[in-house]
């Protein structure tokens, strides 16, 4: 565990807290993509299947991971539930039109082609890694359709982007200090994902500076 990893996890938790607070205080979920939130719920449910066979008391790190995994699964399901019930009337359903099968399909194919071991759990795990890399796309699509990024949605995406960037630094750190630590699959997917955020922030900052509506290519 290094400083980048823990800071990355904390920004990930912060992003979720920002989203929940925004919905609670403004009593609406305008500008939030339900599709992205459902993809994240799917990412966590498929990533953390190991919860079923891991003893959380094995080590302090396992304990920490177990708590975080349960936190991510439960909060992502809670967000989806809230958006589908309490805040349903404020959800921009028509604008949230990204076709999710275009993300799930390729992620499934990639997982069948690239995985670490030939077991169902490993293929499902690889699927979650690939899906996470692109799960933000419906959210970016929605932002570009509405053309405006509310501050709070910007903060949410910023916290998520910080999480990705810090994880990348964590990998650099570990590759340097832990001999034999190589995670090609996670790294490739992670770099793609970090690139998506970097691209978003480039356009976000540019549109803010020029006071124009956000346009993503």
């Amino acid at each position: 565990m290094n400083i980048f990893r823990i800071a990355g996890d904390m920004s990930h938790v912060a992003s979720i807290a920002i989203l929940l607070l925004k919905m609670k205080t403004s009593r609406n979920c305008a500008g939030v993509s339900l599709k992205t939130q459902e993809l994240y719920a799917l990412v966590f449910l498929t990533r953390y299947v190991d919860l079923l066979f891991t003893n959380p008391l094995r080590s302090p790190l396992t304990m920490y991971n177990t708590i975080m995994k349960i936190l991510f699964i439960s909060t992502s399901l809670y967000i989806v539930y809230q958006m589908r019930t309490r805040y349903k009337h404020t959800y921009n359903e028509a604008a949230d039109a990204f076709r999710v099968p275009f993300l799930i399909g390729p992620a499934a194919v990639a997982a069948l082609l690239f995985h670490l071991k030939n077991t169902v759990v490993e293929v499902v795990w690889a699927f979650s890694i690939f899906l996470e890399a692109v799960a933000i796309m419906p959210q970016l699509f929605l932002l570009q359709k509405t053309g405006e990024v509310e501050n709070i949605t910007g903060h949410y995406i910023f916290a998520l982007g910080a999480y990705r960037g810090l994880y990348a630094l964590n990998w650099v750190w570990r590759a340097f200090w832990e001999p034999g630590y190589r995670q090609w699959l996670t790294w490739t997917a992670g770099i793609v994902q970090t690139g998506l955020y970097a691209d978003f922030f480039y356009h976000y900052i540019r549109s803010k500076r020029q006071g124009k509506k956000l346009k993503l290519p």
């Binding site: 990893r5 190991d50 790190l61 995994k69 630590y181 995670q183 996670t186």
Partner: peptide, 10 residues
């Protein structure tokens, strides 16, 4: 179980 130690990230 030792193999899973590699997957110690979230």
């Amino acid at each position: 179980d030792a193999e899973d130690d590699k997957k110690d990230e979230l």
